[in-house]
């Protein structure tokens, strides 16, 4: 939030000495791009988070059943994907050529649906839930789905809120998906707009040894504009935090459960 001259002449300072909103005006000079990106990012972050959390919980809960055959195998199957991946090319072929998800909002949501890391985290939490309540519910004739939705989920609000927050932030900061899969400028994510600037700078410096192209630095926004972009992009994500925080702080204890 410092004006550009101050930045140039005295460098970064922890406390800005010269306050200016010029950069923000510049960022919002052409607001449709940013507004589109906001809409898209918000949509896929919310939908993606909700679906991800639900599906991951559905995966994690059965894994806590020690009697379930193949439980360790599934855990290993999941873990394996954490470490090994076929790289970008096969995924790209699958997603664009066979599933036709390129240039749709679903490409932000579907491929990254299951995060193994958070699934395991949920599993650990579900493990700690008192099994006896479930057993008494079973005696009452409740099915596993009923137990899952009626008891497991409500009891695990803190972890679900925590995981949801992580996923939400992960989605909010997604720029690489836009880079690879999105052609339609109306569908790019907010973070991509910021990352593009950084990538442009990197591109210019990489090619600095190559005199055979004309380098045009004038399209690179000034540093204060970049900072303003960073704030505009990250800001709203900061605002969602209190919303999730409510759930951690409430802290649901066993006592509040009533079957």
């Amino acid at each position: 939030m410092t004006d550009e001259k101050t930045l140039l002449y005295s460098g970064y300072q922890v406390i800005p000495s010269n306050f200016s909103l010029e950069a923000y005006k510049y960022v919002f000079k052409n607001p449709t791009t940013i507004i589109d990106a906001y809409k898209v990012t918000f949509a896929f972050s919310v939908i993606g988070t909700a679906l991800s959390v639900l599906l991951m919980a559905m995966l994690a809960y059965p894994l806590t059943k020690k009697e379930l055959k193949g439980r360790n195998f599934v855990s290993f199957l999941l873990f394996f994907t954490m470490l090994f991946s076929g790289g970008l090319v096969p995924s790209y072929i699958l997603i664009t050529r066979y599933l036709h998800l390129g240039d749709t909002i679903w490409v932000y949501i579907l491929p990254s649906m299951i995060s193994v890391w958070y699934t395991f985290m949920m599993r650990t939490f579900f493990n700690d839930l008192p099994k006896e309540i479930f057993e008494s519910a079973l005696v009452d004739g409740a099915g596993e789905f009923r137990i899952f939705f009626r008891m497991v989920i409500p009891l695990s609000k803190p972890v679900i809120a925590a995981v949801a927050l992580f996923i939400f932030l992960g989605k909010w900061n997604d720029w690489f998906t836009s880079l690879l899969y999105i052609n339609d400028p109306k569908l790019v994510s907010l973070q991509y707009l910021l990352q593009k600037i950084m990538n442009d700078i990197k591109l210019l410096s990489e090619n600095s040894g190559n005199m055979s192209i004309q380098k045009d630095t004038s399209s690179i926004p000034t540093e204060s504009v970049r900072m303003a972009m960073a704030i505009v992009v990250a800001g709203p994500a900061l605002l969602v935090f209190p919303f999730f925080q409510k759930y951690f702080v409430k802290g649901l204890t066993i006592g509040s459960v009533k079957g």
């Binding site: 090319v89 790209y92 072929i93 050529r97 690879l180 593009k196 442009d200 591109l203």
Partner: peptide, 17 residues
């Protein structure tokens, strides 16, 4: 976008898009 071009083209060439 210019800064994405290298990666995108690589993918498009590889996938036969």
């Amino acid at each position: 976008d210019e800064s994405s071009y290298n990666q995108r083209l690589e993918m498009m060439l590889a996938s036969g898009e």
